[in-house]
Design a protein around this nucleic acid. Structure first.
Lengths: 205, 205
DNA sequence: TGTACATCAGTGAACGCGCGTTCACTGATGTAC
DNA sequence: TGTACATCAGTGAACGCGCGTTCACTGATGTAC
């Protein structure tokens, strides 16, 4: 039952999309090839018609999911769409929303995959490092303007984003045990990242 | 070959200590009971004389390793030992040092275990949530003083610590692919967390 | 354009392997008398 | 204090299970003529 090229390629993308969500939810090692293929609507044997190995899929997914996160960030903070300050605040609020905390499969892949990537090698790490570079560049562009040079804007971006992924990680880790504590973390980090003082020169030289 | 109670307890603690390091390096799922016991100098069968299950050990290790991190933080930032500002800066520098990045087994357990804990339940999550609460309380105490109320000091602590674990996670993820980028992340986050403006009112109301 | 054949996406059984856990066994330690 | 017996930390083989990967097979699609 050979399929048309178009159909086969669509099926491949379906596997990548499903894996993009499931890898974020359960980690690279938390979901098997068989479960993954079943979630995409196939039996497991056909996996190797599309990918050389599970690690090959991980690299593809990492590329795909980070590129989409960057595109999403650029779209939501396009300076033609409103005041930079407002757009940035809305992005941060969305990033740290309870919905994002409770649905890692649809939220920022950097907060989840940064740990999974540690124990991988080669192409997966490369895809992550390059994807993170691109994302941070977009994040620096999205920051509200202050009088500063390019280097210190980048430094601000890195420090602010570190707080976002660290805050999300902590909020997720304690959410089921202590919902109030989890919400407090989200609030504190959100306020700090949006506050003028953090935006101003935290991270500057 | 029954052992004395003291010897048996010492062996148990040895397993917990070894696991504390290995779980941080490879994650809860990244090391098997057999490897763990071998690293501690035993064969795997005896594991269940000390622990009801691997999850039982995870909970023990989480408690142990977070308590030690908190004790270590309190010791290094004891206000009798110097100016709070200096002690805090030294702690941050140590936290983000390349040595800490490259040896997660001996570095902060919160940055590594916050992800592993997500996919666990019950006692492991409880141990982490309680350990994190205690650690953040100590972290708030360690922050240099500014004129502020207790709530905003806690908010500062949470936001600053979020940046530390997020920065460490990113720096680790890209270290092998882009050493300069990794170092840049550590530098930017360190500067931001130590800077007066971040210490001042980022995260305040 | 029609036809014959090679290609290949998908199926589902099977592979070797490592996992967490259990088990029978050993023999020094702890304890009841 | 001495003795007989129960206890239990450690050993290493074995368990069932799920993993990533391979394989023979099917049959519609793609292609060479």
């Amino acid at each position: 039952m050979r399929l048309t090229k178009e159909r086969a390629e669509a099926n491949r993308q379906r596997i990548v999309a499903e894996a993009g969500q499931l890898f974020r939810e359960r980690g690279f090692d938390g979901i098997s090839v068989a479960e993954l293929m079943q979630a995409a609507g196939f039996t497991h044997g056909g996996f190797y018609n599309h990918f050389a190995s599970k690690a090959d899929l991980m690299a593809d997914v990492t590329r795909d999911v980070l590129a989409k996160a960057t595109a999403n960030l650029l779209r939501l903070t396009d300076p033609n769409e409103g005041r930079k300050e407002d757009l940035f605040a809305v992005y941060v609020d969305m990033y740290l929303a309870p919905a994002a905390r409770d649905n890692p499969g649809r939220a920022c892949p950097i907060s989840t995959l940064s740990q999974d990537v540690l124990r991988q090698e080669g192409e997966v790490k490369r895809a992550f490092a390059q994807g993170l570079e691109a994302y941070l560049e977009a994040f620096a562009k999205a920051l509200p303007d202050v009088t500063e040079d390019r280097a210190s804007r980048r430094a601000r971006a890195i420090a602010a984003f570190a707080a976002l992924i660290g805050g999300l990680a902590m909020a997720r880790a304690v959410a089921s045990e202590n919902e109030a504590f989890s919400q407090e973390i989200l609030d504190c980090v959100g306020a700090a990242v949006k506050s003028p003082s953090c935006r101003n020169d935290a991270g500057g030289r």
